[in-house]
Each structure stands twice: as C-alpha cells, then as structure tokens.
Write a protein that binds this DNA or RNA. Structure first.
Lengths: 354, 354
DNA sequence: AGTTAGCACTCGGCGGCCAAGAGTGCTAAA
DNA sequence: TTTAGCACTCTTGGCCGCCGAGTGCTAACT
C-alpha cells in the first residue's frame, strides 16, 4: 500500500481519520489548518491528493472529507498510535476476572461485557473449544422412577447435561456403578472412538447392557453435536453501547446489525478464519466477503491454549470505529482469557503477537 | 368496569381496537360504518360516548380514534375472541419440544424462540426454579495438578460448575471418595443446612478435611448465589420480530426496549408477581408500576410443577399488541413447559386456568 | 515550486408557506 | 334515534428560497 506518502500528507490523513472517528462528521480543510500550521488551501490540496490516492472521499462537492476503506486500512497499519489501556483499566479488568476465576461458564459473559464497555461497541465471544473434544467424565443421577440425568464433562472443561429414560427402579448405586464402568471404557476417548466402543464393545468383559449402550451412544451423540454446533454458542453483548453511535439513527440499521449478530453471519466466515490465524485480525467495511457487513468493521482475536483449546473474542462496530482503542481492548482481553485458560490447563498460552 | 355498554357500543369498541391493532393507525368512523351497517355519523356518536367513558382517545381534533389503556383492558376482559393456536401450529410446537425433550438447558431457549415467533414480539423466559433448592449430587473431577472441577446438581435438575484449588497430586479416586462422602452428608439438604454442616460437622466420624470443608462451603455458596441471582438467568428472544412494529420507528424506542429487556426492569416486579399468581397475567401500558414500561404491555404466565419448581414465560410488546394471539401463545407454551416439567418430576403440573 | 488569499460555485439543510386530505363535531332534517 | 351536510381543525407533503459550509480553481506571493 502506498508508502510514498510524504510526512505532511500522512499527518493530514491521520488527522482526518481521527477527527472523523471522533465526530462522525466529514472534516473540513479549515479544521486541520490550525493544527497543521498551514492554510486551509494547502490542506485542501493535500486532501485532493489523498482522494486521488483512494484514501479519502467526500459525499458531495461541498462536503468535507472522510476516509475510504483503504484509508482506514492505511491508518490501522501505518498511522495509528498504539493506545494501550490505562493501567487502572487493566487492573479493574483483571480484578473482575479474578473474582469469577472459578466459574468457567461466566468467563465468556464477562469477557463480552468488559469488551463492550471498554471498546464502546458490540462484543462477540465464542467459548473455548478443543480442536477435537475428548471424553473426561460422566455421571448418572437418578431423577425419578423413569428418568436419569446424565452429566458429561469434556476434556476442555465443558459440561453438557441431558436426560435419559431408564428402567424403573434403577437405584442410584447401580447408576454410579454403570457410570464408573463407562468412565473407564471411554477414558480420554474422542467422539469417533466412543461410537466404536458402543458398536464393537471391545474389552467389555460382561457384555454391555442395553442401557449402558444407550448411555454411551448418548455420550457420543452429545460430543458430536457439540463439535458441530459451535455456532449456536456464540455470545454477544454491548448492542446498547453501539446504538449510541450516530450511524444507528435509523431503525433499519439496527435491524441489520441485530440479524448480523443473531443470525450466523459472523460465524460462517470470520470466526473460523480468526481461529486459524495468530494475532488481532482487523476487517474493515467492504473488505468483508459477506456483503451485509459492508458498513461494519470487525476486530477479532483468538485466545486460548496453543494446540489445545481456543476461542475467539472480538468487537463489531460501524466502519467509523475507534480502531486504536478497540484493537488494544481486543488484544488485552484475549490475553486475559488466554491466561485464565493457561491456569486451567497449565500449558503455554496464545499471546497475540502483532 | 363499565358493563353498561350496550351491544352496539361494544361492537364499535371491539372493531376500533381490532383495526387499530391491525393497522397501527387511528381508525376513522368511516372505516366502521360499512361493517356495522350504520352511517359514519352514528359511529362518530358512539365513539364520542366511548371517549367519554375513557375507553378511546384521539390525538388531535381531526384524527381517528385509538384505545386507551382502559379500552384495551375492557377488550381483553370482555370483548376479545379466544383465538387458540391452530392444531397445526400446536403440532409443530409439540414436535420441536419433543425433539429436545432430553436437553434440559435448551428448553428455555426453544420456548423463547417459539413464543417470539408465534406471538410476533419479544419473548421472555426464566428457567424453572425450586422455591428452595435442595442438594442432589456433587461430582469432583481432577482437571490438572492443582485444580478440581466441581459439578453440582440441584434437586430441580439445574447443573452448576465451578473450579476449586486442590492439593497437588490428589488422585481421581480420592476425589471420588470425597464426593461420595459429601453426597451422603448433604443428601437433599437446603443451602442453609449445608452451611450448618460445614460449620458443625455433625455425624462426621472421621472429621472433615480442610479440602472437604472447602468443597461443602463452595456448594453452599453456589446454592445461595443461585437463589439470589435468578435475575441474571432471564432469557429473551424476538427483539427482531418486535422491531418490525411501526412503534419502533425511532431508535430511542429501540434503546428503551433494549434496556428494559437487558436491565433488570422486568424482574424486579413483574416476574415475582407472575410466579406468585395463577393463570395468564396481562399488564397493559400505564398499569405497570414501573414508569419506563408505560408504553408497553406484558403478558406473563407461570409454568412448572405445582408446589415444587416453577418459572415464567411471557411476551413484551408495544401497548398495541395482538392480545388474543399473544395470550393464547403464552398460555399454550406455559402448558407445554409444564408438561415437560411434569414428565421430569412425575407430579401434577400448573395448567393455566383463566 | 510550493503556499496562500480570494472568489465563484455547489450542494444540503431548514424554515416558511400553501394546498390537499382526512376526520371530526355540530346542526338540522328525516 | 339516525343521518346528511357542512364548517372547522389539524396533519402531511411538496415546493421554494435562503443560508452556510466547503470546495476547487486561479492568480498572486515567497
């Protein structure tokens, strides 16, 4: 990308983008003349040049300039100041995570809430997932005469629950014995391996009862479903924060962003991509493959434990987004989440490099 | 409430409300003259009378009529046709619930989604809760050298998870023994009773180890938190459906409704009230105690198993809401949920009577 | 060559105005 | 008691013209 911009031109571009991000109104040459120490006419010339280079536009002849996608991109990659969160903010965030460190299933809620608040836009978080989930533990609990609650714990710490029909008057002791047997049979097994166990019954000295087979099949099915339906587990927060931005002046925009967040748009392309790459990903406006995201920017980062389990945190906002702050927020939260996961697994974490 | 309305006046009121609900525009006397077989002037006279009675208003001199809160109330209680869901819709809903009957934690999601879709507004569902939760089962699973995952199952079937620090090199067998011991000690106990167990250690022949005390305290704390934080568990869906209503033409409305749904407004008064009463509750506009709900109506019903566990389902929409359909939808979904719970507990269910 | 003052030009936004239309309330007649 | 007729009210939408904001260009200046 055009690195042949001279120093002043860069400063003009940077100033335009910063002010536009700040005020949401096209910026006039006058606005910059003062701070750059040159006349408005000079600024106008520079702006015209930046427009020729495809980094700025204006909406009509007598309107101020605003950045194009390429302009934002150049800003993010070459111009932006790295705005780290203040140590005070960092401490507050750390503290909040510390308080719920033992409640696994609140992590993603907190992450989304904190991210939405610090970046002032909508935040998106997927729960951590293993590349291939492995069986850890199962428990069978009698609920009533005919029903059993099966609690399944996967290796990465996720817990799934499900009810199963049982023979009447099966006692809790019997159930515990069965659970114990299955725990041994399925120890650390993958979904596929468990399917195989249900079918072939290897190493099962007393052959498996029909109920035991049912349980094992349910385990396998639950694990497979879990692997397939990550989509449904995506969590978001901060819609309200985002709606304060002036681009959401009309309700059609709101509907649009709601269906992006609640429909599966993000997941189909962005999240897998973020999971597969290191560092913080910034996708700006029309750079998206999905057309419905044309007016939005997305910042995503993977978090988790390398080679083991990982998830994605990020924000979604209008193209005119506070990139420096959003990017540092995403990076920081991803780091915090990785630390938490690291404590849980005692392995090396993903630290966003770039 | 004014039962001295003559037949024709009732028909006028009913027609006005039905048409207003349908079109969202004030209805003119002309519109009703045809269908009532009288002239528009007559209809105007009747409308004026209904306005004197406080059941209708108009926004300015030359605008059509629209219902007041009292008008809606009269409609709901005396005029409305009971519009049951079609058997086809009922079958579809039944079918969807049947498919996930074994996945407890998907019930509320499905209920909210189905309700939002059939009633075409935002739906709200709280998970079933026991009046006082009792301990059912605990499981301790070694995660790594220093961490243990505690899975706690409450009597009503809810599952909570939490990590605990443990002495290094505690084996899974040791953990299972400890879990077994605690399961016996805490059998069917309430949160208070469990606190007492941790403190006084009655009937504990070998005295409890410090780790065992930690686990028991954690169980107690989790149960207490669960009892206090029902609020955070409220689930909603169908915002998008609701935004299609013309009353959400301006974004301030959207923000308003978002903060109602995500802030705790509903829970503080409405949900406890719905939990305490039988049948379907309809609260219209200004009848709310909370002022922020002045422009909205809420329809709620308790569901669950009588005297044991119960939750709330309902919808939130603009005052101009399709009451007949919404009410039947809420009633029906509450019934379905009660059936599901009944199967789980094998006891008598709450069937909304009125 | 680069910078800047000056100026004409363009365009959106806003307020005022007017006409059209929708609907009512009232009155008087059926 | 109902209804036709009519005056009156109030909203809505379109149209016009003005104002202000900003630009682009040119010519002068350094």
């Amino acid at each position: 990308m055009n690195l042949e911009l001279n120093e002043r031109r860069r400063r003009v571009l940077k100033a335009v983008i910063q002010q536009y991000i700040d005020t949401a109104t096209p910026v006039a040459s006058q606005d910059l003349a003062r701070s750059l120490g040159v006349s408005s006419a000079t600024v106008r010339n520079e702006m015209a040049a930046l427009e020729d280079a495809g980094l700025l536009t204006h909406l009509h002849t007598s309107a101020g300039r605003l950045p194009t996608d390429a302009g934002y991109r150049f800003f993010v990659e070459n111009l932006m100041d790295r705005a780290a969160l203040s140590t005070q903010e960092q401490r507050m965030i750390q503290h909040q995570f510390y308080q719920i460190r033992s409640e696994l299933n609140q992590w993603i809620h907190l992450a989304a809430a904190v991210l939405a608040r610090t970046a002032q836009t909508a935040a998106v978080v997927t729960p951590p997932r293993a590349y291939e989930s492995r069986f850890k533990h199962i428990e069978l609990i009698a609920i009533n005469d005919a029903l059993v609650l099966m609690v399944l714990v996967l290796h990465e710490g996720s817990v799934k629950q499900q009810t199963l029909p049982a023979d009447p008057h099966t006692t809790q002791e019997q159930l515990s014995r069965i659970a114990g047997r299955i725990n041994e049979l399925c120890h650390e097994a993958s979904a596929k391996a468990i399917v195989a166990i249900a079918q072939t019954q290897p190493a099962a000295q007393p052959p498996l009862s029909s109920f035991e087979v049912l349980v094992i099949e349910s385990v396998a099915r639950a694990m497979q479903q879990f692997e397939e339906h990550v989509n449904e587990l995506i969590h978001h927060d901060g819609l309200l924060e985002m709606l304060h931005q002036p681009e959401f002046g009309q309700v059609t925009r709101v509907r649009e962003v709601l269906s992006i967040l609640e429909g599966g748009t993000m997941l189909e392309s962005l999240i897998p991509q973020a999971l597969a790459s290191d560092g913080v990903q910034v996708i700006i406006g029309g750079e998206h493959s999905r057309d419905e995201l044309r007016d939005y920017s997305v910042i995503l980062s993977r978090y988790g434990v390398n080679g083991d389990v990982a998830g994605v945190v990020g924000v979604l906002g209008p193209r005119r987004m506070a990139y420096p702050r959003s990017i540092s927020s995403v990076r920081y939260i991803a780091g915090v989440m990785s630390d938490l996961m690291g404590d849980l697994y005692g392995e090396r974490k993903i630290e966003p490099t770039e």
